[in-house]
Nucleic acid binder design. Structure first.
Lengths: 335, 335
DNA sequence: TTATATTGGTTAACCGCTTAACGTATTTTG
DNA sequence: CAAAATACGTTAAGCGGTTAACCAATATAA
């Protein structure tokens, strides 16, 4: 069943059918519209995406490019899974399809974007090494998320990571913690981590607490390696609380602490970031900074679609707030 | 940059370039091949997928259709996330792209498959209510996974759920447990759950243990609702161990048990299924039946590609083994 | 009444790639 | 040495839509 057949049975030209399908009704009578729509309904006709893409030089595909740890299943990261899932439903809602790629092989990504004539792109995460290549892609409307570098003319949706860090610092200080540690989430240096750390420092500074350099851990490696963690905790000035740049790292930290027979929160307190479902499954349940991933996905896709429909819009930047969700992973040292 | 331009600068026809790109070298001299390939390299030409799909009446897209809980982000289920991630990398390896859809809105799925001229489809999960509609899709090579119903002419890759259930029953019986419970994973009745349950019954039968009907819970609702769970556990004949049809349910069960101040495994033992990363993060770490999801994805995609390339192959069925991974969520009651 | 819009269409040239059918030389075979 | 086969191509007709340009009939304005 093709558009041409629809046109024939309706007794009109293919142009008219095409206009009806695409809602260009300036030059079609109400009668004709209804007749054509009925025929489409009854016949179960579905437009051919390839033909449409070819003619319009733009497909209903949006590239979703995720910063990934090489050779790791990208959806093993629960944040990525949740976020990409949310982006997917938002894209479908607008009639677009996600083309999900990780940055593992950059050449493939670039080839895909060109080969599929994508209508737009969504980047998640930081891509310091790929920055130059990314520039070549911005011919197409793009929204960057979860990163802070800017390419002129691109859009951005982020989370207020600095505030999140501040809230974490403020909360832990108020709970009486004075010796603190920070654990980054990413393997590469990530500017999201940097902002969370910066906020954390600011939050603590209000209480005249400074972070010992040794306790700013730039990768989550220590959390996966019990020996490294034990070394750190056996120091006389060992931290009493950890702020982790993600729930994933926090969950792993709690696990390792349990394994080493440290009690959370009695011996060590832990604060996470993201408020993923994981945060309710740790033992004890995790106190964490919450972000609304569904809302973020909604804003991202909305912004992208807007820029796809109208190419000359000015670039936009949106920052989403975060809030503290108190569970049971932080001890109150005040009495 | 189009194929036509490549042809012009190489001084050949578009047909020849097309043949070189697609590896049909029967009628192209080695010289010409090399010349064209060089030009393609230098120019960074990438074929237009839409044009190719249109001409071939088949796109490089494979539909991946996932049984989903309505209105739940499909990747919140860690099994689904892991599996779809693995399928994605396997599909990319063969030059195909996943079009990921959940069964939420069946009409959309069918429309997509037609609109995109997909080369094949992979189904995951059971779709009892949609069965009739699925039949209309099998014009295209299809592999069913994680389900047991058959449509003539379709392929199947599954996990040996019955053996898994048997192993669980055998293990728990050997550990001295006599009063047992089973918790299903799916909200709908799922035949995967049924097979795991059946195997569990068989495993227990070898020790003359039968499952009390009250303790065969057809949905994970009890696990999310502390009151329901408490009621069950306060019965005089309460089970000493639970076999959960998935790690996800097991993790939630452990959480609820912790919340109710039952000790795992001292008071209650738990066995899961899947061996997801989650299984290492529970407290205590979860004893579970492991399946190799990467291997499954590999087999599924391999099988599908084979049937895409050669349409008249006989349908295939493959069953993958499972094994027990012993961690710390089961108590030994023997002494 | 004539010029001008407006309404409701049609025509046909693409979009970029594939592929069946059709050529020539050149080589091989009987 | 003629016929057949082989090597190395080319031509051109699609695939199924989109869209700029064009047109006829009717309504409106001057």
């Amino acid at each position: 069943m093709t558009l041409k057949e629809i046109a024939r049975t309706a007794g009109v030209s293919t142009a008219t059918v095409s206009n009806v399908i695409n809602g260009n009704l300036h030059h079609v009578s109400a009668d004709t519209v209804e007749r054509i729509q009925n025929i489409i309904q009854e016949s179960g006709y579905v437009p051919n995406q390839a033909a449409r893409s070819l003619a319009q030089r733009e497909s209903k595909v949006v590239a979703v490019i995720i910063q990934a740890i090489p050779n790791e299943n990208i959806f093993r990261n629960p944040y990525t899974a949740e976020y990409v899932g949310a982006l997917t439903v938002e894209l479908y809602r607008h009639g677009y399809f996600p083309l999900i790629r990780s940055t593992d092989d950059y050449r493939d990504v670039v080839a895909d974007l060109r080969g599929w004539n994508v209508a737009g792109a969504i980047f998640s995460g930081t891509f310091p090494r790929h920055l130059k290549n990314i520039k070549s892609l911005t011919t197409v409307p793009t929204v960057f998320t979860d990163c802070y570098f800017r390419i002129p003319g691109t859009n951005h949706v982020g989370v207020d990571d600095v505030s999140g860090g501040q809230l974490a610092g403020d909360y832990l200080a108020q709970m009486g913690h004075k010796r603190l540690a920070f654990i980054a989430n990413s393997i590469d240096e990530s500017d999201v981590d940097q902002h969370r750390l910066q906020g954390f420092r600011e939050g603590l500074a209000a209480y005249d607490i400074t972070l010992t350099d040794d306790f700013v851990l730039p990768t989550p490696a220590n959390v996966y390696n019990p020996d490294l963690l034990k070394n750190l905790l056996q120091r006389p000035d060992a931290p009493t609380a950890f702020f982790c740049a993600s729930d994933r790292v926090a969950a792993q930290l709690i696990q390792t602490l349990n394994h080493l027979n440290y009690r959370v929160p009695d011996d060590i307190s832990v604060v996470g970031f993201d408020n993923l479902p994981t945060a309710e499954l740790t033992h004890p349940p995790l106190t964490t900074l919450a972000q609304d991933i569904d809302q973020k996905a909604h804003l991202v896709v909305d912004m992208l679609i807007r820029h796809i429909k109208q190419k000359d819009l000015a670039p936009e930047r949106t920052l989403l707030g975060v809030w503290l969700v108190e569970r049971q992973s932080v001890a109150d040292l005040n009495n």
